[in-house]
């Protein structure tokens, strides 16, 4: 498989990528550097407006923070679940896997709107809080960052859990036996054996969750609402309502660039860990 012609196998995908990814990206770049979408005149106005405006910079920061916090929250829940999955018998294993995949079978839109029902002022959480006397007045959850992160954590959970379980399931159970019989405590076994071996899954999951949460247009606008500004909704608004395509293009490229930067950093981290 190392013959000089092997690269040709990648040709169809390469061409498709060129056509459906690289070309639109170039058009996007061109649009961002023009006065309008007809690309007749060049201008840096859009970029000045994105990068020179604290509102837009704040939106970039908000978007990245949302991705990061969602990754953190999914990690916090997925890691223990993956450990339970590892220790479980075949039936519980199957149940966990089904529970992990099940959310993927309903559309993001449905999941997002269900979160309105849960987080709303008269929603499930607030009704419970008030009925149990834990709170006298409804707690603001909908249209707050914590509420949005809570919802995204559920919505994005499969993207974290599946790669993580794939990684932990590959860990030979006798490694855990070896560790305990060598006198390691559970904490040592987890930190020295399980975690390092699950790291590729953790990084893959974090990458997916980050990219997905940072660009979760529907959840961000429906659950986050108008007081929280994230780039995807701003891109949509500029492109579809205001018809300022250069600004939309510059914002879209900013979103893509900043998400790619984080994803790249995560990958470096993963590569570093593998060589450590």
């Amino acid at each position: 498989m190392n013959g000089p012609g092997v690269w040709r196998l990648a040709l169809p995908l390469g061409l498709a990528q060129l056509m459906f990814f690289a070309a639109p990206l170039l058009i996007l770049l061109g649009t961002s550097l023009a006065t309008d979408e007809h690309l007749r005149e060049g201008s840096l106005r859009a970029w000045r407006e994105v990068l020179g405006d604290s509102f837009h910079i704040q939106s970039v920061v908000n978007t990245l923070r949302l991705g990061a916090l969602t990754v953190l929250a999914t990690l916090l829940l997925a890691v223990p679940l993956a450990l339970v999955h590892m220790a479980a018998g075949p039936r519980l294993k199957r149940a966990i896997l089904i529970a992990a995949v099940l959310p993927l079978l309903t559309s993001v839109v449905v999941r997002t709107f269900s979160w309105i029902v849960i987080l709303g002022r008269e929603g499930v959480i607030n009704s419970t809080l008030i009925a149990t006397g834990l709170s006298a007045t409804p707690v603001a959850l909908l249209q707050t960052e914590p509420g949005l992160i809570l919802a995204l954590t559920q919505i994005e959970m499969p993207l974290m859990l599946l790669p993580l379980i794939a990684a932990t399931a590959r860990i030979d159970p006798s490694l855990l036996d070896a560790s305990t019989s060598l006198g390691a405590s559970l904490a040592r076994t987890l930190s020295r054996v399980v975690l390092p071996l699950a790291l590729p899954g953790l990084i893959a999951g974090s990458t997916l969750v980050f990219a997905s949460a940072a660009t979760a247009f529907i959840s961000q606008s429906v659950i986050g609402g108008g007081r929280l500004n994230y780039l995807p909704a701003l891109v949509w608004q500029q492109a579809m309502v205001v018809f300022d395509w250069p600004l939309a293009a510059a914002m879209a490229l900013t979103l893509m660039g900043s998400v790619l930067m984080v994803v790249g950093a995560l990958n470096l981290l993963g590569r570093g860990a593998r060589h450590a």
């Binding site: 309105i116 909908l142 249209q143 108008g226």
Partner: peptide, 11 residues
């Protein structure tokens, strides 16, 4: 709430 128009009836 400050929301997308499509979300208003649901809210």
């Amino acid at each position: 709430a400050v929301a997308q128009p499509a979300a208003m009836p649901g809210l």
